[in-house]
């Protein structure tokens, strides 16, 4: 993996985002800068309402930043670089589970046979066989979220942007999906930027954990996680793990001061 460690996949420079509405402007992101190496797994933690989703949206190009920029060095402009999993599943209610997952491929105008194979593969991956014909309203929150993850993965994007993708899952499914994500990440050589509220999940999955402050969000911590790969459950009890958790917890507690009220 030595060849890949220095190559940068994503570069965020002095990113600023404010929302303007009738009663003034709301500054959400304040000069955020970081870069992510190719094939790295980076997690973001931060207080609720701080601007994490906004950061992912800006990286995905859904929001025009007020200042700064987002770069994808060494990537073809026209290629699908980022795939975003939203905080809410955002499935199309008139499409079945299968057709929701195949949507990106249809938009990409892939041949029918390929769509069919890739979609089936994804359905298996997220463990939803047998529900192909179910409509979104017939799915549980966790199932819908897994469909959303599958819809993102099926495009095979270079960079995965995940916004609390396991938020609605129970603890065990959450861990299983985390393992699954690590497997996909390792197999397909992805770069991952993932928002999570769980400190232990962040440490378990990531190479680095970024801590954002409350709105306007600034980057106040960039903690490397020195646990070996592949990660195993037993590592949750290593002193490195606990130490990282302690650091992150202290930092978050500092930032989630009363100022963070809306």
């Amino acid at each position: 993996m030595t060849f890949s460690t220095t190559e940068i996949a994503l570069e965020v420079n002095d990113l600023e985002v404010s929302f303007v509405d009738s009663d003034g402007s709301l500054e959400v992101l304040d000069k955020i800068s970081f870069s992510i190496e190719r094939n790295a797994f980076v997690c973001i933690v931060g207080p609720s309402g701080g601007g994490k989703s906004t950061l992912l949206r800006a990286v995905a190009g859904l929001i025009q930043p007020t200042g700064g920029n987002v770069l994808f060095p060494g990537m073809a402009e026209d290629k699908a670089q980022t795939g975003l999993v939203f905080q809410k599943p955002n499935l199309l209610p008139w499409r079945t589970l299968r057709d929701n997952i195949s949507l990106p491929l249809e938009i990409d105008q892939r041949p029918e046979a390929e769509i069919s194979v890739l979609t089936q593969e994804m359905i298996r991956l997220v463990g939803l066989e047998g529900f192909e014909k179910a409509y979104p309203h017939e799915l549980s929150g966790g199932m819908a979220q897994r469909v959303a993850i599958a819809r993102c993965l099926v495009q095979n994007p270079e960079i995965l942007l995940l916004d609390e993708p396991f938020g609605q899952l129970d603890a065990l499914t959450r861990e299983r999906m985390g393992d699954e994500l690590l497997r996909i990440w390792n197999e397909r050589r992805k770069t991952v930027l993932m928002v999570t509220h769980s400190i232990s999940e962040a440490i378990f999955l990531a190479d680095r954990v970024l801590v954002l402050t409350c709105r306007p969000a600034r980057l106040i911590m960039d903690l490397p996680i020195e646990l070996p790969r592949p990660r195993a459950d037993a590592m949750r009890y290593l002193p490195e793990f606990t130490e990282a958790a302690r650091l992150l917890h202290a930092q978050l507690k500092d930032t989630t001061v009363p100022a963070c009220q809306l």
Partner: peptide, 9 residues
């Protein structure tokens, strides 16, 4: 939010 999905795709 569904428009955003289409945009992100």
């Amino acid at each position: 939010e569904l428009r955003e999905v289409m945009e992100s795709l």
